[in-house]
Amino acid sequence: MLFSPIILLVSIFIKVESKGPIFFRQIRVGKREKHFKILKFRSMYHSSINNSGSVDKGKSIEEARKEYQSTKTNDSRITKVGKFIRKYYIDELPQFWNVFVGDMSLVGPRPDTPVQEVDYSKRQWQLRNKVRPGITGLAQLSIKHSKFGHDMRINMDIFYVKKYSFCMYFYIILKTILHVVKGSSY
Rank of each mutant, 00 (worst) to 15 (best):
V29I: 15
V29H: 06
V29G: 07
V29M: 13
G30S: 09
G30Y: 13
G30P: 14
G30N: 11
K31W: 05
K31L: 07
K31F: 06
K31H: 09
R32V: 01
R32L: 06
E33K: 15
E33D: 15
E33F: 04
E33V: 08
K34Q: 14
K34T: 05
K34L: 03
H35G: 01
H35R: 15
H35A: 11
H35I: 12
F36K: 13
F36Y: 12
F36E: 08
F36M: 09
K37E: 11
K37H: 12
K37Q: 08
K37G: 00
K37L: 08
K37M: 04
I38D: 05
I38P: 07
L39R: 06
L39V: 10
L39M: 10
L39N: 04
F41H: 07
F41L: 07
F41D: 10
F41V: 10
R42S: 05
R42L: 04
R42M: 06
S43I: 00
S43K: 05
S43P: 00
M44F: 05
M44Q: 07
Y45E: 02
Y45R: 13
Y45F: 12
Y45A: 01
H46V: 00
S47I: 03
S47C: 09
S47N: 10
S48C: 02
I49E: 06
I49P: 00
N50I: 08
N50F: 03
N50S: 12
N51L: 11
N51A: 09
N51D: 15
N51P: 09
N51V: 12
N51Y: 10
N51E: 07
S52P: 01
S52F: 04
G53Q: 12
G53D: 10
G53N: 13
G53C: 11
S54R: 09
S54Q: 14
S54Y: 02
S54K: 14
S54E: 15
V55N: 00
V55K: 02
V55H: 01
V55I: 12
V55Q: 00
V55D: 00
D56H: 06
D56I: 11
K57D: 14
K57R: 13
K57E: 14
K57V: 06
G58D: 06
G58K: 08
G58M: 05
G58H: 04
G58A: 05
K59Q: 12
S60W: 01
S60M: 04
I61Y: 05
I61R: 12
I61M: 12
I61C: 09
E62V: 11
E62W: 05
E62L: 10
E63K: 06
E63S: 01
E63N: 02
E63D: 05
E63T: 02
A64T: 12
A64H: 08
A64C: 09
R65Q: 04
R65A: 14
R65W: 07
K66F: 01
K66M: 06
E67S: 07
E67R: 03
E67W: 00
Y68E: 02
Q69L: 10
Q69R: 15
S70A: 11
S70K: 15
T71V: 10
T71D: 00
T71A: 08
T71S: 07
K72T: 15
K72F: 03
K72I: 09
T73N: 11
N74W: 08
N74M: 14
N74E: 12
N74Y: 11
S76Q: 11
S76N: 12
R77Y: 03
R77P: 04
R77L: 07
R77D: 03
